[in-house]
Nucleic acid binder design. Structure first.
Lengths: 240, 240
DNA sequence: GCAAAAGTGTTCTATGTACACCCATGT
DNA sequence: ACATGGGTGTACATAGAACACTTTTGC
């Protein structure tokens, strides 16, 4: 098979699916939509849609991200995860889905705008507890892969800062790691690690508000120019 | 856009492309085919082909791997890399390519069987030195991404063993790292690292042949059951 | 004997781990 | 005053870096 001669080969539909993560009330959460039509009516699915004719896959993902979240100036991070293309993953047509992962700070509650009226934030624990019959298509697999991507990616990149709105305190950033990993890294070591990496965060002159029960005014930081964390931030005991 | 309603959406062709790496004469090498037809006639391209109607993407990749290498019992490793889908990456049709990476031990010289008659091994240095006009489509980008995947993957997995035929000596395994990274890890530290990870390699009772100039008979090993290397094997000074 | 390569040991240093502790502030 | 949480210090353990060195064999 010398490549790229379509011949009698069938064409398929290509979609993008999005696993959009954010942190709400200290819990890692995922945007999901309730399907209003068959197949899988009433099931939860990842937001997504078709790639348009003149559109790059990445463009399509950004467009869907804006449509589904209702945010036009999205400040977070978006990257491709991988593609899923089992022949009968959609019972109607052959559809290859290019899944993406997005890291978002404080997105608004999904509104009734566009057609994402049924979009809602679910914590990853809630999603994991769902019966497999209530998750559409192979999206449970995609979610599991996306979760692992997020958990590992904040180990060796600075992308954790994409989960907090600027400016932020180190305690807030640490709570990001706690939410994503399920366990908080050691306080002192975390501070040394983050501040020891040139350009991970940059301090501002301001100080934040003290906590409700009192305490010092924490220093506020902004995202720095660094992208890699090396050596990586290690998750607490990944069970040896 | 509520997902998965094709409506008037156009369908596209989906292919798999393969970056098949092996080590030949101590150099990391890549299988490429010379295109015999337009577009990009005479240019080098990654082997690949269309995904068949009833075929999973991964199945298609395995099938193409067998066809292009002429090996039916492939002993190495194959994984998805990512998808490429710019609208005009192929001038004739809209084609989304799901690229894969394969790690192979000692594959035979590509034969004239099937239609891979023009397939040849190129060292990655040779490929990097090619003018961009002689590499078809966006395959130079795919190759760069695939190379980085291989280089990083042998840091934190045991996949380096997939590049050597069993049984192998630790010196041979070390030469894999040297070939992929361009620099050899320290001899003593390398041995301690590999042998210190339970199940990375398992010793056999046999001893290999001494080197041409003489020397002790090295112990022979087989692949173990471990898949992760943690903490990872670090590449020598990645330029701070 | 000598060269070549396998295999071992040793010291130094960087980094992660696990804490204890101090300090500033709101209630 | 005291609880709360930001911020710092320190002793220990682990593991990588950079060597030197010994051993086994073919020529």
């Amino acid at each position: 098979m010398t490549a790229y001669d379509p011949g009698a080969h069938p064409s398929v539909f290509v979609t993008v699916d999005l696993a959009i993560f954010t942190i709400r009330d200290g819990a890692l959460s995922l945007l999901m939509v309730e399907r209003g039509e068959e197949p899988f009516r009433g099931c939860l699915a990842l937001p997504g849609g078709f790639v348009e004719p003149e559109e790059d896959i990445e463009q399509a993902a950004w467009r869907e991200l804006a449509e589904e979240t209702g945010v036009e100036r999205f400040s977070g991070h978006l990257e491709q995860l991988r593609s899923y293309g089992a022949p009968r993953r959609d019972p109607r047509h052959r559809i290859v889905s290019v899944a993406h992962v997005a890291f978002a700070p404080n997105l608004p509650e999904p509104h009734a705008g566009s057609d994402a009226a049924t979009a809602l934030w679910w914590t990853v624990d809630e999603v994991a507890a769902l019966p497999s019959s209530s998750v559409a298509f192979d999206h449970a697999t995609i979610i599991a892969d996306a979760l692992e991507r997020v958990r590992s990616k904040i180990e060796y990149t600075t992308l954790a800062t994409q989960f907090v709105p600027e400016p932020f305190t180190l305690a807030e950033l640490r709570r990001v790691y706690a939410a994503v990993w399920g366990e908080a890294p050691d306080l002192g070591n975390f501070r040394r690690k983050v501040l020891g990496i040139e350009g991970f965060v940059v301090a501002t002159e301001e100080s934040g508000a003290a906590a409700s029960g009192g305490g010092p005014r924490p220093t506020l930081y902004r995202r720095g120019w660094a992208t890699a964390v090396q050596p990586p931030m290690l998750r607490p005991r990944p069970a040896s």
